[in-house]
Simulated assay, not measured.
Amino acid sequence: MNGEGPEAGVALVSGAAGGIGAAVARALAEAGTTVAAVDRDGDRLAAVVGKLAAEGLPVHAHPADVTSRAAVEALVEAVEQGTGPIGQLVCAAGVLRLSEARWTSDEDWHATLAVNTTGVFLLARAVVNRMVPRGYGAVVTVTSNAASTARAGMAAYAASKAAATAFTRCLGLEVARYGIRCNVVAPGSTDTPMLHAMHPPGAAASAAVAGDPAAYRTAIPLGKVATPLDVAHAVRFLLSDRAGHITLETLTVDGGATLGTPA
């Protein structure tokens, strides 16, 4: 039930209004999976889902704030009742607040952890508790190679992604006996609005590829940044029956930027 094609059932994808989340929604829908696309930005989500639906893809918009327990419980119940049992969960919602660790504000710290960590916890708890009685399911959390490699100016982000990684692996250990697999995809620099916001206009890709020795940041060996679809393909693989004996793992998609360091 967690494979590719029409038998894959329903997938819930958070952060689906753009970037990696939108690419994941497309990739899964093209495989025949019905996608419940979730994002707190209702207008952007409607635009993305409208385009996919116009192409005949089975994607439905569900505006929701993943940092709210009540909103998440209502969301998951609505999808299960209105669309069908959720067999796949992709936690791709994320925010980035740049600041050196010692200058990070309380607000930036809490906002980052709320989306990147608590959002994963709330979604996974609500969905997996429904997967367990059914005896199947697959979860993928999208984190970052910053979860395991120190990055200057990204302490809150890196900490939140490391926590989400650890949570996903612990969850996977606990629910493996119910036939539920939990894995992590850890992208590096990816051609998304988040990356472009970190650099002057037009300079994001070249800066990421070149690296920054002054900030102890290596170049990207493959000589290019990832596309959202590169990451989506990794997510789709881990959700599929082709990865049916893979759980508790992290698949790093960063063009070699962390030199093969486990994430």
Rank of each mutant, 00 (worst) to 15 (best):
A29Y: 03
E100N: 13
G15K: 04
T168Q: 03
R40K: 09
I86H: 01
M1F: 11
C182F: 09
R151M: 13
C182H: 06
G94F: 13
P58S: 04
A16L: 07
V72W: 07
L45C: 13
A204W: 13
A146G: 15
V115P: 04
V24Q: 08
A176R: 09
T33D: 13
A226Y: 00
T83M: 10
K51F: 08
A111R: 10
V253C: 14
H245D: 08
R125L: 09
V225E: 06
A70Y: 12
V185E: 04
P228G: 12
F167E: 00
A22D: 11
D43L: 05
G119P: 08
V140N: 02
L229V: 00
H110R: 10
A124I: 04
I20N: 01
L123Q: 10
A208V: 03
S144V: 06
G211L: 10
T168I: 03
D106Y: 05
V253A: 03
L52I: 08
R26Y: 03
D43I: 09
R102G: 01
E77I: 01
L173N: 03
V38Q: 05
P200Q: 05
M1C: 11
R125V: 01
A114Q: 07
V79D: 02
A164G: 07
A93Q: 01
R134M: 10
I246R: 02
G50L: 09
L238T: 00
V79F: 03
G202K: 09
A92Q: 11
R44H: 08
A205N: 07
A208N: 10
L28I: 13
A17M: 05
G42I: 02
Y136W: 07
E107R: 15
M194H: 15
P221K: 08
Y136C: 08
P262L: 06
A163R: 03
V48C: 04
A92G: 09
A93L: 02
A22H: 05
H199D: 03
A54F: 01
T168F: 11
A71I: 04
D241T: 06
V35R: 00
L239V: 02
A53I: 12
D230Y: 08
L171W: 02
T33G: 11
V13Y: 10
G87C: 04
P193M: 04
L248R: 11
T250I: 03
R169D: 01
T33W: 12
T117C: 04
S240M: 06
H196A: 10
E100F: 06
L251D: 00
T149G: 11
V90R: 12
G19F: 15
A17T: 02
H196K: 15
A234L: 04
H233L: 13
W103Y: 07
A114N: 08
P6K: 15
L222R: 12
L173E: 14
